[in-house]
């Protein structure tokens, strides 16, 4: 399987070398692409110096825009699958292969989940995760244990849809909408490491806004969206 590991990076100069080293050591058979999301630090220069495969966005687009740029690259270069992978060191290369193997069983999306076999801790931080899981269960009938996990692998059909359309950020509401449309989604147990450097962008206000947007999107908006899987638009020129 021709897999592209997409690594959106915003100001990740401290952690990126270790992440790439891990990937190169553990799964050298797969291609990767660092998408520099208009970082204000030396992320781009570091990638060029070390010879990383780099897509350098000249403005900051946010995670959705950066990830979509990576998927455009994957779509244009004929990749069969694309894996969303964090640049901050939380995701581990040893879990890439299990996700690939699961995808090959015929799924559209496989999520690297922290809570399939491990119970979800009951903390304030996980409260949001519980709510989103519940909303998805309610809206789609499917149980996704770790909807906010940022480690996900997408098959070819998903690559084309994500690369082509508006409103496909790599977020739980998109997964929920795709489940609703009939996509096959599965979860595989993974572990995540604590981030190597930098700090999470999730402040209280941002978390609250994120929860509101995600809930409204899952519980209300997805019923009104067109089913992009069924309409099967011809995707010729990505």
């Amino acid at each position: 399987m021709k897999l592209l590991i997409v690594i959106p990076a915003y100001n990740e100069e401290e952690s990126l070398p270790a992440v790439i080293a891990d990937l190169r050591a553990v799964c050298p058979q797969y291609d990767y692409l660092v998408v520099n999301d208009g970082s204000t630090d030396t992320t781009a220069a570091l990638c060029r110096k070390n010879g990383y495969n780099l897509l350098d966005l000249s403005a900051n687009l946010g995670l959705a825009g950066a990830f979509q740029a990576g998927l455009l690259y994957a779509a244009r270069n004929g990749f069969d699958a694309a894996l969303q992978f964090d640049a901050d060191g939380q995701h581990l290369a040893k879990y890439v292969e299990p996700l690939v193997q699961e995808l090959e069983k015929g799924y559209d999306i496989v999520i690297g989940s922290r809570y399939v076999t491990v119970p979800k801790p009951i903390t304030l931080r996980m409260f949001g995760s519980f709510l989103i899981s519940f909303a998805m269960r309610f809206a789609t009938g499917h149980k996704i244990c770790d909807p906010t996990s940022g480690m996900r692998i997408f098959g070819r059909k998903m690559i084309e849809i994500f690369a082509q359309n508006l409103n496909y950020p790599p977020e739980p509401d998109t997964i929920s909408y795709l489940l609703h449309c009939g996509a096959k989604v599965h979860e595989v147990q993974v572990e995540v490491a604590p981030r190597l450097a930098g700090k999470s962008y999730l402040t209280f206000f941002r978390s609250a806004r994120y929860m509101l947007t995600t809930s409204i999107s899952i519980l209300l908006i997805q019923w009104f969206r067109k089913n992009d899987l069924e309409t099967g638009r011809e995707i010729s020129d990505v």
């Binding site: 409103n167 947007t213 908006i221 969206r225 067109k226």
Partner: peptide, 12 residues
């Protein structure tokens, strides 16, 4: 949203 003319986050 259905016509994919507006981003979901802007419609909220």
């Amino acid at each position: 949203i259905r016509a994919a003319k507006v981003q979901i986050r802007d419609s909220i």
